[in-house]
Design a protein around this nucleic acid. Structure first.
Lengths: 132, 132
DNA sequence: GACCTGTTTAGATGAGCTTCTATTCAGGAG
DNA sequence: CTCCTGAATAGAAGCTCATCTAAACAGGTC
């Protein structure tokens, strides 16, 4: 069973997930299924300006800097965050489309909505990182 | 066990997740962060009547029955599904509150946080743990 | 009772993950 | 250029996880 539209997938309770779609989503979910990475993602996403410096993130944990760096790499490899070096420091920010994909997966099935999946459309005006 | 059915947290990008909240959510996410379990959850949730027999689920995978049973137990332990034996067969169904909790976590931030202050430079802002 | 089918439990094995220490890379200051 | 700090890489140790085979449990049929 393949997903009708080109989008990622319907909510989890609407139709059985395709095998490859499940594998793709599992990669993203595995990246988030860790207390440290969850908090990292939350700190980055909720930080003023929509981005956070690694130096800010490291101090919130009882972990060494290389460990934090490793977790950030996992999140980046999964396509959930993006990093950029500006001078001495490196700043990370969330990729809203990736998070929205997960949100759509677990969206409640309150009403049996019509045909297509109502994609939540990455808005997030504050973090202006959508290429229009 | 666990999973006391209640609102758990704000969307991931609104405020930093508390340490224990992140740990609790990671347990649930880890249960879902597997291709087999994702498909199992999707099959159960999208099955007619809202519940599915183990016998139906097993045939869709190239895995042995004990392995499927193990994955179902992980999902049940995480509070995502519930099982009931009726005669010879065992039927599983989704616990909507648990799935909704994940949906709320990754819900898009339509209304931006009221605190602008995009000034991340020069001396890290506290950022630490949120007060409960 | 004995027997058959569906499901779970118990161990074991091999792969993967989290964390560390030690080292290297990148940029700025003196 | 040399030194210092922030961040990433390399490699290793210990633990967790996904999967299997073998065995046990639950319920129905004869």
């Amino acid at each position: 069973m393949t997903v009708p539209t080109g989008q990622c997938c319907a909510p989890i309770a609407r139709e059985p997930l395709a095998e490859d779609t499940a594998a793709e989503l599992a990669v993203m979910l595995k990246a988030v299924a860790d207390p440290v990475r969850l908090r990292l993602l939350s700190m980055i996403g909720s930080h003023a300006g929509g981005e956070a410096c690694v130096c800010d993130l490291t101090d919130a944990f009882d972990l060494t800097a290389p460990t934090i760096s490793h977790h950030l790499k996992v999140l980046r490899t999964a396509g959930l965050i993006d990093g950029e070096r500006r001078g001495t420091w490196v700043y990370y920010r969330i990729i809203p489309e990736a998070v929205n994909k997960l949100g759509a997966l677990f969206a409640p099935l309150t009403e049996p909505s019509p045909g297509p999946v109502p994609q939540p459309v990455a808005g997030r005006s504050e973090l202006g990182l959508l290429p229009a």
